[in-house]
Amino acid sequence: MNEREYYVPSATYWPIIGSIGVTTLFVGFANQMHGASWGASIMALGFSILVFMMFGWFGQVVNESTSGMYNTQVDRSFRWGMSWFIFSEVMFFAVFFGVLFYARQLSVPWLGGSGNNHFTPDLWNGFSSTWQQIAFSTPGLILQSGTVISVPRQLVDAWGLPALNTALLLLSGVTLTFAHHTLRNGDRNKIIGWLVATIVLGVLFLGFQITEYGHAYHDGLKLTSGIYGSTFYMLTGFHGFHVTVGVIMLTVILYRVQKGHFSADSHFGFEGVAWYWHFVDVVWLGLFIFVYWL
């Protein structure tokens, strides 16, 4: 398409399908949580509609892109769109890290009377307001929501699976960088190998993460294990979700590389996904250090 032309896309019905899908998903979810037997099937229906919408919408964009309808201005709009979308994701993760720091540095010490010397309650026998111990509350303690707190026998060991998983994910960053490098040199055969390696590492990470959840759950560390369990599962859970999305996006990119959609000079789709993967990688590194170590 001519560089001096504005591109205005045709009318589209994908957004309304997306709205119907996401609404169905949420309504199903909310009903599921309140014991409606049909909630889960409605959720599944909404999710399928969403997946259908994404395939359709993104497929249309890819088709338009490969048929040369877009110019550099459209490319730049996509770049800005993707970048600020990722920034909103950064803010979303920032909330949960903020919660982790707040609970660890402020609210848990306050429970032990810090900053307020004449109020040092003995919440239960042997209570000490340290971050590690907050998960080991008295068995039978009940939250306001009526949930009985689950007391773990031990917390997740940083030396085992988490360290291995960190190594795997960091390695996937390396393989992705090699893929990026070969793409920039226009070497299509090698990039496929590196991309496959990245995807395999991502899937391995997810597998080990599920194993670790299994161990933790078996040891009694659950979402209901007080603020420790809450922050642990919320942070790792949302991270795992983003890794899943990242793996799916990398798979799509792999498919598009095979189709020859990218050139050494023009490969925004690849760059967007690559940056997303690096971001997910860094979030894990932050998780590993702040949840398990510092």
């Binding site: 848990v108 429970l111 007080g226």
Partner: peptide, 11 residues
Amino acid sequence: GTAFFDAAGGG
């Protein structure tokens, strides 16, 4: 059953 906003669980 999380305890983000519940002091009983350290939130």
